[in-house]
Amino acid sequence: EPSQADLDALLSAVRDNRLSIEQAVTLLTPSSGGGSGGGSMDAKEILTRFKDGGLDRAAAQALLAGRTPA
């Protein structure tokens, strides 16, 4: 399960175009075949909204942490 520091680094990389959204989703869902963790939004949607400015960093982190299976 990614830590808050991992999520923060991942969000920074996506925002700075050092990591594509697809690459980030793969890192967030290493063994689930890329499927959502059952959250209301999947990781790709969360990351896309964050990059487009629709979500701030704290909200994106909380959503990603919340949808990651324990």
Results as ranks from 00 to 15, higher is better:
A60Y: 00
M41C: 08
G38L: 15
G35K: 09
G39Y: 05
I46Y: 01
L55I: 12
P2A: 12
R49D: 03
D42Y: 06
L63V: 03
R18G: 04
L47K: 00
S40C: 13
S20F: 02
L64S: 00
F50Y: 11
L55Q: 01
K51A: 04
A60R: 00
D16S: 07
A70P: 11
L27V: 05
L47P: 00
L11W: 02
T29I: 09
Q61M: 15
A13P: 00
A62Q: 14
L47G: 00
P30K: 09
A58L: 11
A13Y: 04
I21V: 08
L64H: 01
S12P: 02
M41I: 13
D16G: 05
T48W: 04
S3G: 11
A70E: 07
G66D: 15
G39K: 11
L64M: 03
A9Q: 09
E1H: 11
K44P: 02
E1L: 14
P2T: 12
D56N: 06
T26Q: 15
A58R: 07
G39C: 10
V14H: 00
I46M: 02
S12A: 08
L47A: 02
S12G: 07
A62G: 06
A59L: 07
S20K: 03
G53K: 04
R57N: 06
R18W: 07
L7G: 02
T48D: 04
D16I: 03
G33Y: 06
E22H: 06
E45N: 07
A43L: 15
D8V: 05
A62S: 13
M41D: 05
D6M: 13
S40Y: 14
L27R: 06
L11G: 00
A58T: 07
L28E: 00
G33N: 11
A13V: 02
E45H: 05
G35P: 14
K44I: 08
L47R: 00
R15Q: 10
A58S: 10
G35Q: 08
S3Y: 11
D42L: 10
R15P: 00
E45L: 05
E22C: 08
I46V: 06
A5K: 06
G35H: 13
N17R: 06
P69I: 15
S12D: 15
A59P: 01
V25N: 03
G37E: 09
G33F: 10
Q4E: 15
S3P: 10
G34E: 10
S12Y: 03
Q61T: 11
I46F: 01
T29N: 11
G38P: 12
A24S: 02
T68R: 06
E45G: 07
A62C: 14
D42H: 08
Q61V: 11
T68S: 08
S32N: 15
L64W: 01
L55F: 04
R49H: 05
N17G: 15
Q23Y: 09
P2G: 12
L10T: 03
E22Y: 04
D8F: 07
S20Y: 02
S40M: 14
L11S: 00
R57S: 08
L19R: 02
M41H: 07
G53Y: 04
Q4Y: 15
K51W: 03
M41P: 11
N17T: 04
L19P: 00
S12T: 12
V14E: 00
R18L: 13
L28V: 04
G38N: 14
S20H: 03
L64Y: 00
A58C: 11
L27S: 05
F50V: 02
D8R: 04
A24R: 00
L27T: 04
A62F: 03
L10Y: 03
R67H: 11
S32Y: 13
E22V: 07
Q4I: 15
R49M: 08
A24V: 05
L7N: 03
S32F: 12
Q4N: 14
S40D: 11
G38H: 12
Q23H: 08
L19K: 02
T26V: 12
A5D: 06
G33W: 09
D6N: 09
L55V: 03
L19S: 02
I21M: 03
T68V: 08
D52Q: 12
M41L: 10
S36F: 14
A9C: 15
G34C: 12
R49W: 04
L55H: 02
K51V: 05
M41N: 07
Q61Y: 07
I21D: 01
V14F: 03
S32K: 10
E45V: 06
S32D: 14
S20P: 04
E45A: 07
G37I: 14
D52H: 10
E1D: 12
A70F: 01
D8N: 07
G38C: 14
A62Y: 03
G33V: 10
S31P: 10
D56V: 03
A60P: 00
R67A: 15
A9H: 08
A5F: 15
L47Y: 01
S31D: 14
L63S: 05
L11H: 00
G53P: 00
S3I: 11
E22Q: 05
M41K: 06
G54H: 13
P30A: 14
E45R: 04
L63N: 03
P2I: 14
G37P: 13
G35V: 10
L27E: 04
K51H: 04
R57K: 14
A70S: 09
S3C: 12
S36Y: 14
D6E: 12
D6V: 09
V25C: 09
I21T: 02
S36H: 13
L27C: 07
D56F: 02
D56Q: 04
L10F: 04
A5I: 15
L7C: 04
T29M: 08
P2H: 14
P69Q: 11
L55E: 01
A70Q: 04
T29Y: 12
V14M: 02
A62E: 15
L47N: 00
R15C: 13
S20G: 05
P2R: 10
S36D: 06
R67C: 15
A58K: 10
S36R: 10
A59F: 04
S3D: 10
L47V: 02
T26F: 06
S36K: 12
N17E: 09
R15N: 07
D6H: 14
S3K: 10
L27G: 03
G38S: 12
I46P: 00
T68A: 07
L55T: 02
Q23K: 10
A9S: 09
T29S: 13
L19G: 00
R57G: 04
I46L: 03
L11T: 01
L28M: 06
L11E: 00
R57L: 13
T29V: 13
G38Y: 07
A59I: 07
A43C: 10
V14A: 01
A43H: 06
D16Q: 08
A58G: 06
I46D: 01
S3R: 12
D52A: 10
G38A: 14
L64E: 01
Q61P: 00
S3F: 14
V14G: 00
R67Y: 15
G39T: 09
E1I: 13
R67L: 14
T48Q: 14
M41R: 06
S32M: 13
F50L: 03
R67I: 15
T48A: 07
G66H: 05
A60S: 02
G39I: 13
L28Y: 03
L64D: 01
L19N: 01
E45Q: 09
L10P: 00
G38F: 11
V25G: 03
E22K: 05
A70H: 03
E22I: 06
S32E: 13
E1G: 10
R57C: 06
R49C: 08
L64I: 05
L28I: 08
D56A: 06
P69N: 14
A60G: 01
S31M: 09
G54F: 11
S31T: 12
